[in-house]
């Protein structure tokens, strides 16, 4: 009897495999498997490899196996004046490029704010936004022709105005500025885009209230527009900073870091040491340092992002 009753009680049904996969504890990780595979093969393993190699003396051309060298590479980098020059040149480039792009982008963005009725607005905006989606190698190559002292259109314009024609990219005093100008041309549109997004996030009611209160233009900008738009602008500036720090294709294609090393930003320094000299140990150490800088940038970006989300959440609570 006992046995029979045991047998007649509903048996625990065996879970089918698909049911197991669909369970709430398994599903989240299952969905992450593909991304983790990519992440481990193309990021974790190479990064560990890089970290390891940064403690070795290793040159691909010598044909000798890597020799453990402790902190030798890091020590050598920190005492290398070319690295410090490259880094300071990069930061100067970033500060000037992002600063000018932000101011110009803000001004142009404010100008384009009332452009809703502009005839052919979509085409005009396409023309305006085109520089930032162009292939950097292509624009770099073409700016070289524009800057060319004999054949370049810029030289022709200078001569037409009675000014001396300059070798913009070949002159050690001018190359940095010439490269900077191309970056400004390429990325000011991005800051215009961010400014327009920031302006769109300002509540209309508050602008009308400012109108009624007869606030001055400057007060409106500071108290209403920047108050609401500052997070988007900040994210824009940060993104541009990170991107400017990475700039390489564009400069490399115009000047190869020259003349001399006047336009050699740190990404080009690393490129040269790694893929022209093949000093892999040293280059790995420099890449590790750049990785740390990038992580600091990313952390700053996420911090600003979260402070925006917190503020929006608290605003929503107040509203409710």
């Amino acid at each position: 009897m006992r046995l029979a009753s045991k047998a007649s009680s509903p048996p625990r049904r065996r879970q089918s495999f698909t049911e197991f996969l669909g369970r709430r504890e398994v599903m989240p990780f299952l969905l992450l498997v593909p991304v983790l595979i990519f992440f481990i093969i193309w990021n974790t393993i190479p990064t560990l490899w890089l970290l390891g190699l940064s403690f070795y003396r290793f040159s691909l051309t010598s044909g000798r196996p890597p020799i453990f060298a402790g902190f030798y590479n890091f020590d050598s980098i920190l005492n290398d004046s070319a690295v410090w020059l490259g880094l300071s040149r990069t930061f100067l480039f970033v500060i000037l490029a992002v600063g000018i792009e932000t101011v110009l982008g803000l001004l142009l963005g404010l100008l384009f704010w009332g452009s809703q009725k502009l005839p052919g607005r979509r085409v005009a905006l396409t023309l305006l936004f085109t520089p930032m989606v162009l292939t950097p190698v292509a624009s770099g190559t073409f700016w070289r022709l524009i800057y060319d002292p004999t054949f370049g259109i810029l030289g022709s314009i200078f001569r037409g105005l009675g000014l001396p024609s300059l070798n913009f990219l070949g002159d050690a005093h001018l190359a940095f500025g010439a490269v900077l100008l191309v970056d400004i041309w390429m990325w000011t549109p991005f800051m215009v885009l961010m400014t327009l997004a920031a302006l769109a996030s300002v509540p209309k009611a508050e602008l009308e209230a400012a109108e009624i209160d007869q606030l001055s233009w400057w007060q409106r900008l500071r108290l209403v527009i920047l108050y609401h738009g500052k997070f988007i602008l900040m994210l824009g500036i940060l993104l541009r900073t990170i991107d400017a720090f990475k700039t390489m294709d564009l400069i490399y294609d115009m000047t190869f870091g020259g003349p001399g090393s006047t336009t050699e930003v740190i990404a080009i320094t690393l490129y040269r040491r790694a893929f022209e000299d093949f000093t892999m140990g040293w280059s790995s150490a420099l890449a590790v340092i750049l990785l740390l800088i990038s992580i600091a940038f990313t952390a700053t970006f996420i911090f600003v992002l979260h402070s925006r989300d917190r503020k929006q959440a608290s605003l929503a609570e107040e509203g409710a």
Binding site: P46, W49, D249, A267, Y271, A274, A287, L290, F301
Partner: peptide, 21 residues
């Protein structure tokens, strides 16, 4: 965060370890 930091790295630093691999 880690995913994002991959994209914040200068290209020559990002490609170096992959090149070695």
């Amino acid at each position: 965060f880690l995913l994002l930091s991959i994209r914040m790295l200068p290209g020559s630093a990002a490609i170096l370890p992959v090149y070695l691999m």
